[in-house]
Amino acid sequence: MAVADFAPGAVAEPQDEPHATGLRDDAFRERMAMLGLCSPALLLVLVVLVSPVAWLFWLSFLANDGSLSLEHYERMIASKSYARIFWTTFQVSTLTTMLCILIGYPLAYFLSQLPPRAAAICLITVLLPFWTSLLVRTYAWLVLLQRKGLLNNWAIELGLWDEPVKLVHNMTGTLIGMTHIMLPFLVLPVYGAMKSIDRDYLKAASNLGASPVSAFWQVFFPLSLPGLFAGALIVFVLCLGFFVTPVVLGGGKVIMVSMRITDNIELFFNWGAASALGVVLLALTMGTLYAASRLLRLDRILGEGNG
């Protein structure tokens, strides 16, 4: 309408749409320039991320003689040992995640309630382990937990138990070490979620008649759940592919997928088998992420229903 006011009569004529072609060209050129600026990053992603995975995928379908085959996958289904390894991996990851939640959630809550300065100092201590070598931390646990380690010596001296307890080279040791290493990955997102909860929600709950305990469970906890899910997911996924700590603290008794991959390459020089394991691990991780995203959406739907 407004256009007609400017130029009564001829609507479609080019002179009524001044610079239309030129402006369209400018827009196109700008998009191309953006793409050009992005291309180094795109190339990097392609070279560093996409191509290795594609290569891995390709190798897993090659038999030892170089022909295309499914033998690596068939062996995984046929052999019981593979099932056990996947089960162990799943078990270790789940237990570690649960331990991290049990320890990390209260810790994050404590941090979120501190005054800013104290919270910053405490957060640094949570992050401190990140700055020391993973291997050093793992061996430190070995020193603490072994038969004649600090913990056993003290416990016996204090009379807590008589015989040295086997705390390492087994599932217990693996879980202790992994929980310690994974904890910051859970604490940070949970802390972030808790800090973003408006204090007025708790005031409102309290005003409406909620005791501090029920205000926590009915308002604070549900609002912190997205952070908890995010943290738990990061920990779980990282655990699935974890290597160093289970090797050192598991003492060969806790065999995870990553360790079998190493064996396949270093002992058997079987790149195909290792790749197939890698592909299955990747698929499992993706499956977990997908399931988690579905679960979160489900949670939202359930949240609408109940009160």
Partner: peptide
Amino acid sequence: PHKRDVGMVFQNYALF
């Protein structure tokens, strides 16, 4: 506060 039994409307509403 939770025992006072007063209704309150908050500035930012504080709806859960």
